[in-house]
């Protein structure tokens, strides 16, 4: 008899893999099966028939879509993402360094945003409907209502130009020390923090409030416990699962926010690489980046699912 948790987690993992597989089909289909000739799009309307035929040959567009898909997938599984059309370089090589940069940026944003969001969420619940709650809600409402890139420019204008601290472009390379790198990414990290903080804090607040409406919290209050003790000892342990869920969902969101923020700050990461090559219509690069972003996104959602399974005591101790 297999433990139900093992069974559930295996099911989730299998489902995640299946989803990733389906997503790869979708990404591939999105660039090939849609109406419109890729070769024509790349070369523009003025292309000669010969150059079109050559490019189609080079891209393997003359093969049936199914064959192309499996060739592509086979390559991806072996770590071969193909070569970029625009400069003929190996995509996997170009991506490796950029992926590292993107992770570096996302990591520091997460390190700051996650504890801050949970703390603010707790504060908002503690002072529900009083001014701290209203202030936090108002500020988060404002940050939700501005696109990431605009928060970026507003911060560049006020922090980098007006106050003259931190740099407005975030160019990093391997020869820089950690301190110099952190200084360079200070404003992008602030932007990303603001972007996910709002969502994360609102969802944390909702999750804890949900718990706070249960009967055992009322009992604890009637026992005469102080509000913070009630939150710490009774509400928080029960809110961990939803909060971890919230955090994971927002980290997934962070990965997407990174795309835009990198463009704003000319940061040499994956997002900028992707956007650059979308406008150059470099399909293999777009497919590779799309797949990696989708994989990270699906992966984080999967972790969220698994954590909420593990955090459920009813599943951990079956009757």
């Amino acid at each position: 008899m297999v433990h139900p948790i093992v069974k559930l987690v295996t099911q989730r993992l299998a489902l995640g893999l299946l989803l990733l597989f389906a997503a790869s089909i979708l990404i591939f289909a999105g660039t090939t099966i849609l109406p419109g000739d890729v070769a024509q799009q790349i070369l523009g309307q003025s292309a000669t028939p010969e150059s079109l035929a050559n490019l189609r040959e080079e891209l393997g567009l003359n093969d049936p879509p199914l064959t192309r898909y499996f060739n592509w997938l086979g390559g991806v599984l072996q770590g071969d993402l193909g070569t970029a059309l625009t400069n003929g370089r190996d995509i996997a090589d170009s991506l490796a360094a950029r992926l590292k940069n993107t992770m570096f940026l996302a990591f520091w944003a997460a390190v700051i945003a996650v504890p801050l969001a949970i703390l603010l969420g707790l504060l908002a619940v503690r002072f529900k409907d009083r001014w701290p709650d209203k202030l936090i809600s108002g500020v988060t409402l404002a940050t939700i209502s501005i696109p990431e890139f605009m928060i970026g420019y507003v911060l560049i204008y006020w922090v980098a130009i007006r106050m003259g601290v931190f740099s407005s472009v975030a160019i990093v390379n391997d020869s820089m020390s950690l301190g110099a790198k952190l200084n360079a990414i200070a404003i992008p990290v602030m932007v990303l923090t603001l972007v996910v903080l709002a969502h994360m804090m609102r969802m944390t607040r909702a999750a804890i409030l949900n718990v706070m409406q249960s009967a055992y919290i009322e009992t604890a209050e009637l026992k005469g416990l102080r509000a913070l003790t009630v939150i710490r000892k009774h509400a928080f342990p029960n809110a961990i699962a939803p909060i971890v869920n919230v955090v994971m969902l927002n980290l997934a969101y962070l990965v997407v926010g990174v795309v835009v923020v990198e463009v704003v700050f000319a940061y040499p990461g994956m997002g900028q690489y992707l956007v650059d090559h979308v406008s150059k219509r470099d399909v293999p690069v777009v497919q590779a980046c799309g797949l990696i972003f989708a994989a990270v996104y699906i992966g984080l959602n999967l972790v969220a699912d698994i954590v909420s399974i593990l955090a459920n005591p009813r599943l951990r101790h079956p009757k």
Partner: peptide, 12 residues
């Protein structure tokens, strides 16, 4: 399961 922005970029 694919972020909208990424999907939109792929299609565009």
């Amino acid at each position: 399961s694919i972020p909208s922005l990424i999907f939109a970029l792929v299609v565009l």
